[in-house]
Amino acid sequence: MGKLLRVAITLAVVVVAIIAGRWVWDHYLYSPWTRDGRIRANIITIAPDVSGWVNSVDVQDNQQVHKGDLLFSVDATRYQAALVELQAQLQSKQYAWDLANHKYERRKQLTGREAISEEDLETARINTEQAKAAFQLAQAELNTARINLQRTVIHAPDDGSIINLTLRPGNYVHQGTAVLSLVQTGSLYVTGYFEETKLPLIHVGQKAKVSLMSGGKPLIGTVTSIGKAIADTNVSSNGQLLPQIQQTFNWVRLAQRIPVDIQLDKIPNDINLSAGMTVSIFLQDK
């Protein structure tokens, strides 16, 4: 074997090794995968539309509910009383309007005979209009009271599971303050936090393999969107409104992580997925 051939074989192996080593490096550093993925879901926070104490809680923690199911009810006594009060007020306004109208009709007949002035008639007419407006106002208030009474029972806005239910009968709940949350059924998706260096390799529609931390068969998903913004810590300011700039090293830079949403194609029935679980995500190369 000639010397030239021996040299050539070694050099060839070295060249192949350089190419292969480069490929391994790229594979680990730039292929679009992340261990920083989470299962997420649409969470609906449920707040009562009226204040009051809770009379009954009709669901249990982690219970599956359907749209329209009764969740809990707020004590309605006060709202019933308000309804009755406004009904009486409506009636009173109705009579006031009748009376004003009656007076006006009577005065209309008197004008022909010049028994009352034009101004008196006009006043009577306006009084009637005013009584009518007062009646309509009372009607509107009654309607509001009716809505309030209806809203003392809180129904599930969608199919889902109750999460972290700490509400107990007797608790006082405030209007607009959320007291329990609901995980919408079938809304589970995955968000992967990918380093920005890997973003050029990620595009919408790409297939993703999602492995749960608990193991088992990986799930298949599709990239639906790539986050367009993350918070920049340099824009916050201190008590004197001076910008708080983070000090960094010149040559060591940490890649930011960008959220990428992945829709799961099919969730097998035998897998119990909970929002918040940790997953590893591997996107298929194109």
Binding site: M1, R6, T10, V14, V16, A20, W23, H27
Partner: peptide, 25 residues
């Protein structure tokens, strides 16, 4: 008969590593 055995062995190891990564990883 190999020219520069050390070079050859290191290069071969990297090739094998890449092959293993390609096959299993």
């Amino acid at each position: 008969r190999i020219w520069k055995v050390a070079w050859f062995e290191v290069a071969l190891y990297i090739c094998y590593l890449a092959l293993v990564v390609y096959l299993f990883g």
